[in-house]
Nucleic acid binder design. Structure first.
Lengths: 184, 184
DNA sequence: TTGCGCATGTAACCAGTTACATGATTTC
DNA sequence: GAAATCATGTAACTGGTTACATGCGCAA
């Protein structure tokens, strides 16, 4: 059964990890324990229900067991890989500010998307960030003088944060370009 | 009735805003619509229930009505101001990464906390950020060479983000210091 | 007089959290 | 054989989301 409605982000994170390499629920939990993937809790109460949803959606299946291991490992199905790809290519919408979903996507894109797709993802992201940065800077130049100290500094924090995200996005673009050229 | 258990962040945001200036639910909603305070939705389904909680906790009361306005305005009570202060002084715990709660606190601290309290808040924040940055950089120097391109860049994003937050925190410290000296 | 902005809410839903339960297997 | 860790889950709760309902006052 291929579900039509959008899964929550955590489920896509699991799908992305499993797509890289088949894994059991426990192994996935461990990954969330050590890496700050999206900032989700590594508690079983988060992982297992999400995993179940992905399973019910038909996006993962039991691994072809050559090497029997303790703990059922899961691998992606074809519909699963299609759903993952569809999620990965779609640009992050809304005010970005919180880059965490964008970074999650970016992480899993490497093996799944073409260079062109990844490039355009970053381009769209860059444009969005630049635009948001603009609007914050406009507020700063117009109203900074009549703002309280702490308000002004909060605004500054937002600006610096966006600037750093933008710097990253541009760096990422040059890096993936370089890597792409090298491969040819 | 003074509630003992911790309110959700949104409620504190409302309390902080009302403490600055008495406001009605609708006015608060408008504020959330234009300013990205903590990134909460400005929907009535978020604001009004949260406001109700703050009211039930005994932290706000109907404004002393000199100027009757349409829409009931709320002002903080003494317990409300105490609860707000207690929340504002407490350093943000856990992995910070998401600065939004810290920034929310910082914003409301100006009129409520002393210079020493605000200074120490920023000092603690700085220490935390520096420590997290260290651990990420350690990972980078140790494992960057054996990481996939996108993974390495994701890590880089985390590092750059923390670096920018740290830069901000240090800037904020010098700024509040300067403002404090000026006032003496 | 009709439609828009003010103003306040509720209902259904959703995803994630904490805390608990349980059994198997490994390690000391 | 006791303790730790592997491994998978459920239950109760929480806080926020979207969408809807409603009435009032004002302006075109």
């Amino acid at each position: 059964m291929v579900s039509s409605k959008r899964l929550p982000t955590l489920s896509y994170a699991l799908l992305g990890l499993i797509n890289r390499q088949p894994a059991s629920g426990y192994e996935l939990m461990q990954i969330f324990k050590v890496t700050p993937l999206g900032g989700y809790s590594s508690s079983p109460g988060a992982i297992y229900p999400a995993l179940k949803k992905v399973r019910i959606a038909g996006f993962i299946e039991p691994e072809d067991q050559e090497v029997p291991s303790r703990g059922q490992r899961w691998q992606t199905t074809l519909p699963g890989r299609e759903a993952l790809t569809a999620w990965l290519v779609k640009p992050v919408e809304g005010d970005v500010m919180d880059l965490s979903e964008a970074m999650l996507k970016f992480t899993f894109q490497e093996e799944v998307l073409s260079f062109d797709e990844r490039y355009s993802f970053l381009k769209v992201l860059t444009a969005r960030l630049a635009q948001q940065l603009d609007s914050l800077q406009a507020i700063e130049t117009r109203h900074a003088d009549q703002m309280r100290l702490h308000d002004r500094l909060s605004l500054k924090a937002g600006i610096m944060d966006l600037q750093s995200s933008l710097d990253w996005a541009r760096l990422a673009i040059t890096e993936i370009k370089a890597a792409h050229k090298e491969k040819i």
